[in-house]
C-alpha cells in the first residue's frame, strides 16, 4: 500500500474559456494535514470538487489522480464512502433538528439506525454540541451550524477529511475549537485536505501547504520553511502622509532594503529589526510599526496585492 493518500499530476480544469486549474501537481501523505491556499478564483474549490467527483477534470492524457488508489471518474462513490466532505456553504436541513439531520445523513452511508444513534451521540460530544441534539437548525448560530456540518462529515469515520474553508466567517473561539478538533482528528489517523485564505489557519494546523494563484501552484512546502526561505524576518509598516515623504528618500534606496507600497501603506522588509528601527530614526518617522513577517506577507508577495476580477 502506498504511503500517499492523494497524488495529483498535471490536473487541468477549464470552464469554457476560463482555465480554473492549470497543470496542478501535489501529493498528500497519509495522516498529513495539507492546505490549499490562494485568493478567490485560484482553483482551490475546483480542485477539491474534482477529488470527490463533484467536478470532472478536463481531458488531458498526462493527468494522474489517485485518491487512496481510486480515481474519481470511475470510483467516486467508493471515495465518498471513506471520505468526509465539508462544503464551503452549510447545507443542513433547516426544518429538522440536529439529530434528525445526522440520522438522515447516516442513511446515505447505509448505517443502521442503532449504530448511527450511538455514533451521533459521540460526534455531538466531540464537536461540543451535546446540548443541542433536539434543537432545530435555524435556531443554531453560524458557528454551531459549521460544527454540525463537520460532525456530519465525520459520521462514517472517514480516513480522508476534505474541508472547504472550514472557518470562514466564524468568531475566534469557534475557529480555535475547530482547529483543535482537526488536530485531534489528524492524531487519530485522518488525512486532512483543506482550503483556506486565512494564513493563520494554515500556520496553525497544516503540515504542508501550496499557495495557488490563477489555477497554478506558486509555492509548496511547510509553512515555516516557506516563510524563512521566501521572506525577510521583519516588516516595518509606514502609514499615510509619512509614506509619501520617504518613498523617494535616498536613504531607503541606498540601504538596499526591500520595500513596497500598497495604497496608503509602505512595507519595508529586513532580517534585522534593529536595521528597520534605525531606518525609522534616520528618516524621523514616528508613525510606524515593526512586526514579524507572517504568511500573509508571503501570500500577498506571491499572489500580488491587487484584486483579481473574482475578488
Amino acid at each position: 500500500m502506498s504511503d500517499m493518500a492523494i497524488q495529483i499530476r498535471n490536473l487541468v480544469k477549464s470552464y469554457g474559456e476560463l482555465l480554473a486549474v492549470d497543470n496542478l501537481d501535489f501529493d498528500v501523505a497519509r495522516t498529513e494535514c495539507f492546505g490549499l491556499l490562494g485568493p478567490n478564483g485560484a482553483g482551490k474549490t475546483t480542485t477539491m470538487k474534482i477529488i470527490y467527483g463533484k467536478a470532472l477534470p478536463s481531458p488531458n492524457k498526462d493527468t494522474v489522480i489517485d485518491i487512496f488508489g481510486y480515481h474519481p471518474r470511475k470510483d467516486a462513490l467508493i471515495i465518498k464512502a471513506f471520505s468526509g466532505i465539508v462544503p464551503q456553504q452549510d447545507n443542513l436541513d433547516s426544518e429538522l433538528n440536529v439529530t434528525d439531520n445526522l440520522l438522515i445523513y447516516s442513511r446515505f452511508y447505509g448505517m443502521k439506525a442503532r449504530d448511527a444513534k450511538s455514533r451521533i451521540a459521540e460526534l455531538l460530544d466531540f464537536m461540543e454540541l451535546q446540548d443541542k441534539a433536539k434543537v432545530k437548525i435555524r435556531e443554531l448560530s453560524g458557528g454551531m451550524q459549521r460544527r454540525l456540518t463537520i460532525a456530519r462529515a465525520l459520521i462514517n469515520k472517514p480516513k480522508l477529511l476534505i474541508l472547504d474553508e472550514p472557518t470562514t466567517g466564524l468568531d475566534p473561539q469557534v475557529r480555535h475549537l475547530i482547529w483543535n478538533k482537526i488536530r485531534e482528528l489528524k492524531e487519530m489517523g485522518v488525512t486532512v485536505l483543506l482550503t483556506t485564505h486565512y494564513m493563520e489557519e494554515a500556520f496553525q494546523i497544516c503540515d504542508r501547504i501550496i499557495i495557488m494563484d490563477k489555477g497554478r501552484k506558486i509555492l509548496e512546502g511547510k509553512p515555516h520553511q516557506l516563510l524563512s526561505a521566501n521572506l525577510e524576518a521583519y516588516v516595518m509598516e509606514i502609514y499615510g502622509a509619512t509614506k509619501e515623504r520617504i518613498a523617494d528618500s535616498p536613504y531607503i534606496n541606498r540601504s538596499g532594503i526591500r520595500h513596497e507600497s500598497y495604497q496608503d501603506t509602505m512595507f519595508v522588509y529586513s532580517n534585522d529589526s534593529e536595521k528597520l528601527s534605525g531606518c525609522a530614526e534616520a528618516l524621523h518617522i514616528s508613525d510606524y510599526h515593526i512586526r514579524q513577517a507572517n504568511l500573509e506577507d508571503l501570500f500577498l508577495k506571491v499572489t500580488g496585492r491587487g484584486l483579481n476580477e473574482l475578488q
Binding site: L77, I78, K80, A81, F82, F108, Y109, G110, E122, N156, K157, P158, K159, L185, M188, G189, V190
Partner: peptide, 12 residues
C-alpha cells in the same frame, strides 16, 4: 475511534 474505514457504498 478508528478513523480508517474501508466502508463500501450501499447498494444502488
Amino acid at each position: 475511534m478508528n478513523y480508517n474505514n474501508d466502508n463500501r457504498p450501499p447498494s444502488g
